Each structure stands twice: as C-alpha cells, then as structure tokens.
Amino acid sequence: MVLMGIKNFYAGSNSSQGFYSLYDQATSDLDRVYILKGGPGTGKSSFMRKIGLILMDKGLDLEYLHCSSDNKSIDGIIIPKIKVGIFDGTAPHIIEPKYPGVVETMIDLGAYRNDAYLAKFKSTIISLTNDISTNFKAAYQTMKEAKEIHLNKEDIYLSSMDFDKANVITEDLMRSIFTPPFEKDKNPKVTKRFFGAATPNGAVNFIDNITEDLSKRYIIKGRPGSGKSTLMKKIGRHAEAEGLSVEYYPCAFDPNSIDMVIIPTLSVAIVDGTAPHVVDPFRLNDIVVDMFRLCMDTSIEETHKKEIGELNMAYQTKMTLATNFLSEAKRLHDRLEDYYKQSMDFEKVNKKREEVLQEILYLAAIEETT
C-alpha cells in the first residue's frame, strides 16, 4: 500500500447565521464533479467513503469534507491530483450542475428506492422530517442569541483595547512571515473552508491535521475584541497583494470572522488558538502571540469580573442548548434514515458506485501517463 495524504475539512457549518455553505468554493476548481442526489438513508456517504478507501489504497491524496450535522458522515471527497470530486448535493448544501454533462454528472440514488414501501409510512416520515427542521431552526436561533451575548462580552474587552499596539504587532508579524526572498505563485488562488464546525457532538476541528505539513504556526491567543480576526485578515490581504495563494478559514460560529489563514507557499499558518478550538504550542516552530496581554489592559477582567462571568455562563448555556437541538435533529434523522434504508436496492447502488470508481481510476491512470 502506498502512503498518501488525507486532509479533513468542512464546507458547511451550523452557525449563528443558520446553515452556512462554502460548497461553491469546494467545487469551483474541479474538472469533474459527481453530484449525489436522493433522500436520507440512500447511501450517499457510504458511496463516497468506499470509493475513498480504494483511492487511498491506490496512493491518491484525498480531501474529506465532513458533515456538520452528523459526525460519522461525510458530504464530499476531492481527489486534488485529477481535480475530481464527489458530493452530496442534497439540502442543506444543495449543489446543482452549472455545466451538466461536461463537468458535472448527476447521480440519483433515489432511482434505486422503493417508493411504494415508503408510502406505508408517509405520516411518520412527514412528521420526522418536520421535527428535524424544527430542531435545526431552534439550534440556529439559539446560536444567534449566543452571538448577541458574545458581542456584549466583546464590548467590555474593546474598552481596554490599544489598537496602536495591535497595529504594531501585526506589522511585526508580517515582517516575520514575509521574509524575502520568496517566489510568487504562478496562478495564485484564494480559497475558503471551515476547519471545524458546531456538530451534534459539540465543537469539532481538524486544525492539527490541516496544519501538520506546515513549517511554522503562529498561534494567536486573546479575548473577544482583541483583534485576532482583524490581524489574520490583514495578513491574508497582504499575502494576496504579494501574489501568493491564501487559504481562509472562517469561524464556523460567525462566518464573518476569520479563525485561520494559511499561506501554502510560505508554509505558514496563522491560527486563532482560543476556545472552542484551543491550540497550544507543541511543535518546534509554534509561536504564540497573546493579543490580550500585548494589546489590552488586563485589569479589565478584574474590574468587570462579575459581568464577564455572567456573560460566560449565559453563552455556554446557549451553546449547550444549541448542541442539544442539533443532537435531537441527528437522533430524528437516524430514525428517518431507517425507513429509507429499508426501501433501497443497495445492489444497484453498489453497481453504480463501481461504475463511478472505474471512471475515476481511468482518469487517474491518464494523469499518471501524462
């Protein structure tokens, strides 16, 4: 078996803005895209996983796009070398073909479903589907309320912020990161993905996996309002201006904020290392930058101790409740899947999967000979 590389990401997240999709980004640079349609329990995730296992065995690097609503499921796989991807194209991350038959191929696994069998459970299926939707709406509303609490806490810390010091730190970091000489990328790209998500099991991230091959990580510590996201946005924009590719990783909870920037050519990551995705230095070239101690009057936590404590408690309560709603939606979805699984002809699904696999292996073989 040939060693290969696997990277794990999310292209969609349960957020304070509702379900937030970056699937357009994930598919935009691919030459061939297989879009899987079909209801729950039709085997879309298994379809992709089984193909992925064989491609891994062939030594192909893979990117897995995980499902933010089911920790054991995936929503897509990408084979970067041949620019091919397979995606779950159903709600909430609906993907429709832009160049059907030329780039995208639609695969309807629902064609192998026995709808006459499902009709016997019509009322239960409708009820479960509606209850799932209700729980997701409740989760998103609760996250929105948690965001308001977070902003109130941010206002307290902002009152102690020294923005001049933050600008100096940013400039110092940029001098450290962009040390000449370095070559510009021939075709620089800007991409966006999530390194984590709010899931039925709570906050999950793949920071260590995504950054494992990079030479240096700048770990930004701080408090709300300490300028972590602004610092990273400035560094990312500077990298773009220098003609370098940049990977932006928005905050899964608040997609308007940035939690990590990677500059592949320089082999550098700048990452927010605070909760819920705590990153502590454990590698030789991990450098910690504590914006709270460097740019804020730290006495703010003593003078507003009671208020900050109450806001922390309120925020945690809201996020726990939101996770509970996501967990309940997952439980109901599992029940719904059971009905659909019983209606499926998985022999036909397996046959279709083998057809797709052979097409991908053929494309990989062409790549090897060119």
Rank of each mutant, 00 (worst) to 15 (best):
L3S: 12
M4I: 01
Y10D: 03
G12W: 04
S13E: 02
S16K: 11
S16P: 01
S16C: 14
Q17C: 07
Y20W: 10
Y20H: 12
S21M: 05
A26D: 01
D31V: 00
L36M: 04
K44R: 05
S45H: 04
K50G: 00
K50S: 07
L60D: 01
L62A: 09
L65H: 13
L65R: 02
H66K: 09
S68Y: 08
N71P: 14
G76V: 03
G76N: 03
G76D: 02
G76Y: 04
I78E: 10
G85P: 08
F87N: 09
T90Y: 08
A91L: 15
E96H: 11
Y99F: 14
V102F: 06
E104D: 03
G110V: 02
N114V: 06
Y117H: 07
Y117Q: 06
I125Q: 05
N130Q: 13
N130L: 13
D131Q: 14
S133G: 08
F136Y: 15
H150F: 14
I156N: 10
Y157P: 07
F163R: 15
N167I: 11
I169V: 15
M174G: 01
T179H: 11
T179A: 13
E183R: 08
D185I: 02
T199G: 09
P200D: 09
N201Q: 14
A203I: 06
A203Y: 12
T211N: 05
E212I: 11
D213F: 02
S215R: 10
S215T: 11
G222C: 09
S226H: 06
G227K: 06
S229P: 02
L231W: 06
K234W: 00
R237S: 06
H238F: 10
H238P: 00
A239C: 08
V246E: 06
E247V: 01
P250G: 08
S257A: 14
I258A: 04
D259N: 15
V261F: 08
V261P: 10
T265E: 14
T265V: 12
V268M: 10
V271R: 05
V271F: 03
D272K: 10
T274L: 02
P276M: 06
H277Y: 04
V278R: 04
P281Q: 02
V288K: 04
M291Y: 00
S299M: 01
S299A: 01
I300E: 01
E301A: 06
N312H: 07
M313R: 13
M313V: 05
M313D: 11
Q316K: 15
A322M: 12
D334L: 12
L336E: 11
K348H: 07
V356F: 01
Y362F: 12
I366R: 13
E367D: 13
E368R: 14
E368C: 03
